[in-house]
């Protein structure tokens, strides 16, 4: 990973502030039960998107590590998971708050919720696994293999299984998503930039963590 250019960081700032302002002020469809909470789409859903993207980046670096055995790739795989977990926690907490006011409870037995919880536990296990090795190469190899497995499990639990049963989430179990009533064209104007903005913010934070770790290693 190269140092991110200034233009990347400026784009991040613009996109995030655009999301905050436009996300709160644009006209959204008036729907019962959802009411104004439909705006959470720009914050809750995009948090999960950021997490999935960061986990994907980690997955890519794990594959790279297995091919090159370069410790930098192993480090990046670890950092992308750590920052991704922060966004996952944000997605889960915001989702719980939203669920309480639209579905009536902080946690409902919904396959997508349970799937997301299992996926996050799988990534927690990645951290535990990493700490259980003394040898750097052994740690790198085993945790890279586990990370690839965890990413596939995450896709399964979050994107595939909820679609096969009934789920309260749009786009699952026959509910429409990103079409028809729940995402009109004005909302798309904020939703896509918002997704990119939160993903960029995650990448920026990861880059800073990476630079910090670089300095730490040079100190040794």
């Amino acid at each position: 990973m190269q140092r991110l250019p200034l233009s990347f960081k400026i784009t991040t700032i613009i996109l995030v502030f655009y999301t905050l302002i436009a996300g709160l002020l644009i006209d959204v469809p008036a729907l019962n039960i959802l009411n104004e909470t439909i705006r959470n789409l720009f914050f809750h859903v995009t948090s999960w998107f950021a997490m999935v993207f960061l986990f994907f980046a980690s997955f890519v670096y794990s594959i790279k590590y297995l091919r090159t055995a370069n410790e930098r790739d192993d480090l990046l795989a670890r950092l992308f998971v750590q920052v991704g977990m922060v966004f996952g926690a944000a997605g889960m907490l915001t989702g719980m708050l939203w669920a309480n006011y639209t579905w009536g409870s902080y946690w409902v037995p919904d396959p997508k919720l349970n799937g997301a919880a299992i996926a996050m536990l799988a990534y927690l296990a990645y951290g535990v696994l990493r700490n259980s090795f003394q040898d750097n190469i052994q740690r790198g190899k085993v945790s890279a293999v586990y990370n690839i497995f965890a990413f596939v499990m995450m896709l399964l639990f979050v994107f595939i299984l909820p679609r096969m049963t009934d789920s309260l989430h749009p786009g699952n179990g026959g509910n429409p998503a990103f079409s028809g009533y729940d995402l009109d064209n004005t909302m798309r104007l904020v939703f896509y930039p918002a997704s990119i903005g939160w993903i960029f913010l995650g990448v920026w934070i990861t880059e800073m963590r990476f630079r910090m770790e670089g300095l730490k290693q040079r100190k040794k």
Partner: peptide, 17 residues
């Protein structure tokens, strides 16, 4: 469906933003 139209008309939503 109830929306925060009134809140926006009175301009107070801008305070939150």
């Amino acid at each position: 469906a109830e929306m925060a139209d009134q809140m926006r008309e009175s301009g107070k939503i801008y305070v939150v933003v």
